[in-house]
Structures are given as C-alpha cells and as structure tokens.
Design a binder for these strands. Structure first.
Lengths: 91, 91
DNA sequence: TATATATTTAGACAAATATCTAAATACTTT
DNA sequence: AAAGTATTTAGATATTTGTCTAAATATATA
C-alpha cells in the first residue's frame, strides 16, 4: 500500500467526525489552546485531546507548547491533497 | 442538527473507506454494474453491495436497473459540497 | 416452467471508534 | 516545596463499521 493511500486514509478518517470538523472550523479563525477548544464543546477534555491527536496525526493541525498551554493551529496545506482528489471528479 | 450537517456526515462517512474511494475512481471512468465493480476487488459481492449502498445514501452515486443488471453511475454534483467546504480553508 | 445469473437482504462477528472517569505529567505560582 | 492549572495517557465500555456466509429477490434464458 502506497504512502499516498495512508495519507488519504488518515485525512478522511480525521474528517469523518463532526466534532473534528468543527475544531478545524474554529482553528480556521484563530489559534487556540486545547482548553479553549474543549470549552467550545460539551465533551470531556480527554475526548477533545483524543480528537486533537487524530487531527494532528493527519497533519491537519500542528501544536506548539507555550508555557502550560499547548496552542493548536490549522495546517491548511494538507487540505491541498483532498482538494486535488476532489477536483479529479470535476468532469 | 441541521440538514447540511447530516449531508456532510454522510459524505465524509462514505469517503472514509479506501474501497469506496476506489469505487468512485472506477465510476469516474465509466458506468459499471454491481458485478463489474465487485470483480475489481477481493471482497465479497454482498460487501461491495453494502459499500454501494453507503455511497448511494450519500448521493455520491446513482443506480439504474437494466435487465438483470444494476448500473451504477457517479454523481459529481455532490462533490461540490465537499469542494466548497475544503475551499473555506484556502487562506 | 425450471434453471441460471445478478444483486440485495439478513444475521453474525471481530475490529475500530468515541466517549467517559481516574490518574499521570508538566508547568506556574505562591 | 507545595498547591493549582493545563493537558495527556490509561483503561473501560457501548456503538459503529466492514466483512463474511446463507438466503431471498428479480430477471433472463432454455
């Protein structure tokens, strides 16, 4: 199995959850700490941490430690892969 | 929960499987019967039928009966929804 | 009408997933 | 150094998912 297929698997797996897509929508607007992100949902912090891990493994987000906080940012470049795949369906 | 979210859920759920993405890649090239599609994979016909059902529920494909055969076609218009969502991440 | 072909439906099962609580780790502040 | 805050890790559990075999349905052909 090619590397490309694994990448696409990880990306689509990451996108296959409404909470994770909402996290991306939040990060699209501004960088946020794990706690800030968790506060936006009625889900426990450990669960949000798990979602962040899946998004990170798919390279859809990056994280950087800032004191006690971990700040998450969106990585828009990886979306290019999905975009290219989608575009192959445009006629 | 809005209708839009359900649509996106169904689409992303459908795309979250390598076999289903391959089926779409096949149908991108030409319409095919369920049997022809199944022959392209080392998976049982009932399993492929199940995958086709998921793709159909997401409106990613359509089907038409032709004698004993059921011919599947891709529905590219639904990809527009995904495309638009992806494009919101471009800068 | 009987048989063959094409496809789906039903039911079972193992693996993956989303969630939770409790505990661990890491950093900050007093 | 102790206590507080932020986050993750560990482990458990219910639900969802992908797959299979067997059976049902629908159409075609001999």
């Amino acid at each position: 199995m090619s590397k490309y297929i694994n990448v696409m698997n990880d990306i689509f797996k990451a996108l296959n959850d409404a909470t994770r897509r909402e996290i991306l929508d939040l990060l699209k607007q501004k960088d946020m700490s794990a706690g800030e992100i968790a506060d936006a949902f009625n889900i426990s912090k450990p669960s949000i941490s798990h979602h962040l891990d899946i998004l990170k493994r798919a390279d859809l987000i990056t994280s950087e430690k800032n004191g006690q906080f971990i700040i998450y940012s969106i990585n828009t470049t990886i979306m290019e892969d999905v975009l290219q795949w989608i575009l192959t369906f445009k006629q």
